[in-house]
């Protein structure tokens, strides 16, 4: 017997899905419109705005920068985040409680304030090159995801197996690599994906850190829209969406999406 759903609850759910999905439908529609301006519903159907993306050199260049920044930034954040999450869980009793809060600060501070502070400290203060600033900035922005998500899988990790390994003759670093890492693998992959997606879609921090000649794709989309209000913007957005969907599809196929929400 099927479960009965309350009609108001059903209607509410439909509305939620409508508001979640409608913008996506509109973007896809606008991207296919055979007009020189953004419009919905599309008038005529064409793929030329997708072709146009690849004509514009700035999109190609910034897309590559975005990918590089996202990969390096995510890598850097995991390099800091995994050991941090490990220490926070392993020495939960010994370490002060505020220390774990410290690692989620970038989420708590408004992104625009965070971006501005990064510009003041990294780009201006340390005088780092734009690309390095972007990587460092993104790494800090997504560090909370690395620490939190890896931390979540370490929270259920039984540290006595680490002691078992040590008692059997395995030195500390090797124990971490052969016993701890394989058992938090799912958390590390989840952290990587969340951090990667956050980085590749980020606007508010990047807007302060991009500089002459170097920009990320979302920033380039904004810049493009200020000059041209044509469907190219919509088609770039669709491509960006497809990348995210693609990553999610890989996750679903390999690990199952449920483990991201665990």
């Amino acid at each position: 017997m099927p479960t009965r759903i309350h009609p108001i609850l059903g209607a509410f759910a439909i509305l939620v899905f409508f508001f979640l999905l409608a913008p996506l439908v509109i973007i896809v529609g606008a991207a296919l419109s055979d007009t020189t301006f953004l419009t919905f519903p599309p008038q005529g159907l064409t793929l030329r705005w997708f072709a146009n993306i690849f004509q514009i050199e700035a999109f190609r260049r910034t897309a590559i920068t975005s990918l590089q920044v996202a990969l390096l930034g995510t890598g850097l954040s995991l390099l800091i985040g995994i050991p941090a999450a490990y220490a926070l869980n392993r020495y939960r009793v010994e370490l002060p409680r505020w220390l774990s809060t410290l690692f989620v600060l970038p989420i708590l501070v408004p992104e625009i304030v965070f971006g501005f502070a990064l510009m003041k400290s990294i780009t201006i203060g340390l005088g780092l090159p734009v690309f390095i600033s972007l990587v460092v900035g993104h790494a800090l922005l997504i560090l909370p995801y690395s620490v939190r998500v890896v931390g979540a899988s370490l929270a259920s990790f039984d540290f006595s197996i680490e002691e078992a390994a040590r008692s059997l003759g395995c030195p500390p670093l090797k124990t971490f690599m052969t016993v701890v890492l394989p058992n938090i693998r799912a958390g590390v992959i989840a952290a990587f994906i969340l951090a990667f997606i956050t980085s590749i879609n980020d606007v508010s921090v990047s807007v302060f850190l991009t500089g002459p000649g170097i920009s990320t794709l979302p920033i380039q989309i904004l810049a493009h829209m200020e000059q041209f209000f044509d469907p190219t913007i919509a088609s770039v957005s669709v491509l960006l969406m497809l990348v995210t969907v693609g990553v999610m599809a890989i996750v679903e196929a390999t690990l199952g999406l449920t483990f991201l929400t665990k």
Binding site: D158, S160, I161, E163, A164, A165, S167, V179, P182, N183
Partner: peptide, 12 residues
């Protein structure tokens, strides 16, 4: 050689 209360076997 150590034997633990919670077994502490390597799950993987």
């Amino acid at each position: 050689g150590l034997v633990f209360q919670n077994y502490a076997l390597f799950p993987h």
